[in-house]
Simulated assay, not measured.
Amino acid sequence: MSYLSELRAALGTRPLFSVGASAAVQDERQRVLLQRRGDDGLWGLPGGGLELGETFEGAACRELNEETGLDTPLTFWQAVSGPHLYHRYPNGDQVYFVGGLCRGHLPAAALAQAAPDDSGETLELAWFDLAHLPTISANVNKQTLSLLRSEVGLPPLPLDWVPPKPTGEHLRELRAVVGPRPLFAPGANVLLRDEQGRVLLLRSGDMRRWTLPGGSMELGETFEQAARRELKEEAGLEVSELRALKLYIGPAYRFTYPHGDVVDYVSQLFEGQFMGGALTLPADEITEAAWFAPDQLPNAEELSGPLIGANLREWI
Rank of each mutant, 00 (worst) to 15 (best):
L219F: 02
L269D: 01
G276D: 09
L145T: 15
L64N: 08
N65Q: 10
L33N: 09
V98Q: 04
N65W: 06
D93Y: 07
D261W: 07
H170F: 10
R181S: 02
H84M: 13
P163F: 10
M217V: 00
L312R: 14
A226M: 04
L125G: 12
G276T: 04
P46A: 05
A112W: 05
G250E: 03
F97M: 07
R208N: 11
L85G: 04
P166A: 05
R254A: 07
R175C: 15
L219I: 02
V177M: 01
K246H: 15
I136Y: 02
L237H: 10
P163H: 09
A226V: 00
L111H: 08
Q196M: 12
F76P: 05
S81A: 15
C61V: 15
E169T: 15
I249E: 04
G179V: 06
P90R: 13
M275Y: 12
G168M: 14
L70R: 05
W161R: 09
Y265C: 02
L174P: 01
R243L: 12
V95E: 06
Q268L: 13
S146M: 08
G99P: 13
T68N: 03
R198C: 14
G197N: 10
V140D: 13
E241A: 11
A10K: 07
Y3L: 07
V162I: 05
P163G: 09
V178T: 00
V98K: 01
W315F: 11
S5F: 01
E6R: 00
S267V: 06
K165R: 11
L191P: 09
A226W: 00
S81P: 13
V190M: 08
T287Q: 14
L297V: 06
A108N: 03
R172A: 09
R36D: 06
R8T: 03
G205E: 14
L269I: 06
P258S: 13
G120I: 03
Y89P: 02
A23K: 02
P156Y: 07
G205T: 13
Q268Y: 03
